[in-house]
Structure formats: structure tokens, C-alpha cells
Amino acid sequence: MTNRLSPFLIATMILGFAFLYAPIASVVIYSFNASRLVAVWAGFSFQWYGALFENEAIGRATLISFEVAVIAATGALILGTLVAHALARYRRFAGRTLFAAMATAPLVMPEIITGLSLLLLFVALEQATGWPLGRGILTIAIAHITLGIAFVAVIVEARLSAFDRSLEEAALDLGARPMVVFFVITLPLIAPALAAGWLLAFTLSFDDLVIASFTAGPASTTLPMVIFSSVRLGVSPQINALATLFLIAVTAIVLAANRLLRVR
């Protein structure tokens, strides 16, 4: 489009970005506040970070969240790539409409519905077959894989549809077997999308409160669950410090993913 920007548009953009970033900035700034009161600035201090590192509940929950997110992202990557491949390459197969609907619905499905329905499934399954035995990291991970599949599939399908298929066809014509074509031609071409998809699935899992609350067991409290229960009790400077660390980690991940997706 043209590069004419009216003053109105410039003003909206400044306001829009200020709106998006002001709350985040306030959390970061007040995480260094020496005072316990949120709105009163009493000098610069690292004390809340110190308190945070001594908080065992948060340390334990971080490890659990990390474990769940790695399993969930890896599972979602494998299944989501298969979904993307099926949708991008196979125009017709039995039940394709249902398949496509199930693969994309979690993108917008309210988390509370996904969470409750999966919990009821786990309970019914356990009653009927004895598996899964109780709830914990495994059940949260299964729930997050199901959510992540949709996001990985969208990213990978876009990449699969964008590149020149004649590369794959040429390799097939030259006698390469389909598996070889996939690993030698297709995989390197979609690798950036795979990395971005994994990172997105990881972040979604690491950040999820609602689905995890339904599918977690007593010994598998995740980091968002700890944050939520402490937020419900009121704003605490320790949570500000935790949020700041969280933001730094996520920003680093997004910058990495962005680089990956832009490399052509």
C-alpha cells in the first residue's frame, strides 16, 4: 500500500501500541520496587527476585510446567505436521471434512470447554479401562497436545502450501522414494515452520491455566496455577518479578521464532 499515513492513523497506532504495552511495562517496572505497595515507588530493589528464587512452590511448579510443555510441544509437532501434510497434500479422503473441522476447532474453542470435556473423558476412561491412572503430567500433556495440534497444523500447512511442489515431483521423477523425498526435500523446506510451531505449542502449554486446572492432579500444580491462586489473593511484588522473568523468556522465544519464520 502507499506510504501516506494520516495524522489520525499515526495517533491511533501510538495509542494502540501504548495500550498494548503499558500494562506489561508497569509490571516490569514495579517488580524492581522496594515497597510492598504496588503504586508507591520506594526505590530500586532486587528483593522480590531474591524472594522468588527461595519460593519452593514456584520452583517445583516451574519444573512441572516445563516438563509438560516439552512433551506437549513435541507431541503437537509430530501430530500437527501429519495433519498439515494430510490437509495440504491429500485433497480427497474419506472423512476429510470432519478431520479438518476437528483439527481447526481448538483454535477458537473456549478453553473451559476443552478442559472440562477432556477431564470427563479421562475420568470415564479410567473407570472403563483403568487408564490413565489418576491425573497428572501425562493428562495435562495429552490435553495440551490436542490444543497444540491445531496451531502447529496452521503454521506448517501455510508453509507446505507456499513452496514449489515441483521440487518434490522432480525428486520423485528421478526415482527417490517418498520417504526419502520427505526427509531430503520437504523437511528442510518446512523446518522453520516446524521450529516456530514447536515454540508456539510450548508457549501455549507453558502459559495455560484453564485446561491445566481441569486436567491436573493433586501433585501436578503448574506454574500458571500457582500464579493464579496467588493473584486471587491480591497483587504481590513476587508475582511481578516472576512475570518479568516470564516476559524476558517469552520475548527471547518470539524473537527466535520470528527469525526462523522470516528466513527464506
Partner: peptide, 29 residues
């Protein structure tokens, strides 16, 4: 600019909502 729009979406939903409590509450910012 596009990345600046996407970045909050990747950032913890819970923390972004929580940030508003500190801004809006009675003795807030």
C-alpha cells in the same frame, strides 16, 4: 510493527490480565 502486535499474544495471558489489577485497583497505579 507486526511483531509488536504478535508479541503480547505470545506473552502470558494470565500475567497480562494480572497487570491490569495493579493498574486499576483502588490504590493502584
Amino acid at each position: 510493527l507486526l511483531m509488536l502486535v504478535i508479541l503480547p499474544f505470545w506473552t502470558s495471558f494470565l500475567i497480562r490480565v494480572y497487570a491490569w489489577i495493579g493498574l486499576l485497583k483502588e490504590n493502584g497505579i
